[in-house]
Design a protein around this nucleic acid. Sequence first.
DNA 1: GACGCTTTTTGATCTAGGTCAAAGGATGGC
DNA 2: GCCATCCTTTGACCTAGATCAAAAAGCGTC
Lengths: 177, 177
Amino acid sequence: MSQLSHDILQAFAPILTQRTMAKNERLHEAGRVGNRLYLVESGLLRAYYLLDGRDVTAHFATAGESVTAPDSFLRCQPSRYYIEALADSQAYVIERQDLEDYLDRHPEYERLARLYTEDLYMDLLRRSESMTFLSAQERYANLLNDRPEILEFAPLGHVASYLGMSQETLSRVRAER
Amino acid sequence: MSQLSHDILQAFAPILTQRTMAKNERLHEAGRVGNRLYLVESGLLRAYYLLDGRDVTAHFATAGESVTAPDSFLRCQPSRYYIEALADSQAYVIERQDLEDYLDRHPEYERLARLYTEDLYMDLLRRSESMTFLSAQERYANLLNDRPEILEFAPLGHVASYLGMSQETLSRVRAER
DNA sequence: GACGCTTTTTGATCTAGGTCAAAGGATGGC
DNA sequence: GCCATCCTTTGACCTAGATCAAAAAGCGTC
């Protein structure tokens, strides 16, 4: 876990609740407002959305990472995302409202929250640039290098949509052809 | 301009400096640490990087938007990005160090800075998802819909790389074939 | 340990979009 | 106004990766 994630857990401990999820448990449904951020302790969570009826993985979160339905958590809109557990998992949960209230009382943690958001921005930027001009082979290689645990635990189809390619292509790429 | 951008200008007025850029002026060079955020008043700025010697546009900023070299501004690393003006432009400039110092003295603005970062995150998320599974045609249509001023002022090649397609493809897509 | 269900692989074909090359159009400097 | 340079279009061809279909491999369950 990064220093930053660690600091977040410490700072926001008073408003964290702990939750245990079984494999295949759904934590959030599209269409609803779900103002929760999950800070994963163990296991594997996934956010996804439907595009023309197809399941597209938007994000994976393993130990030390976080996941939410960003349109809901950041904008309070009904969400386009689903969140589910891909393995038995444990996570700390933060409610958006609790977060705002807590930060009202403890403005000294605003900076930490901003730095965390900046970090998430950088992660997304990396991902976004990788999607723009890299080949299927290269995107796979990057993921294998950066987050091998995802390839180990997530079903191939979920990883393929996360990497913006078909399941068949990922299967072939992985077999090195 | 969004309410948020407006609030940012107000809140950080004491540390803003104004800068005028001529068309084709380079504001930042890759390889250097450049801790400046540009809040565009008028004109058009572009951030780009080189991938195998090819110029790839990472970001455009028109009036009310902002641009920086994120790896430098957020992580203080030598940057992979160049920033240049695509038209005669005006922008307010914030130095990262000034920002941090100012926020030390005015922690009441930390929240605003966080909300602004969250907004940038949502913008990037939109872009990132559009790159993952939309066709060249659809990505072009989205840009035309969301930010027509870019298509109006930026050279085709820069827009094409921003949309993750070749210049020839963008030319054809635009001519509706 | 056989049966169903899900996940992954493999093969055959098709197509969106890339690459290469060249011709037109604009634009700015002098 | 003329030339050089840059930007955009057009055409011909090619390839990465999609789609469709089916076989094979896992794996939970009774």
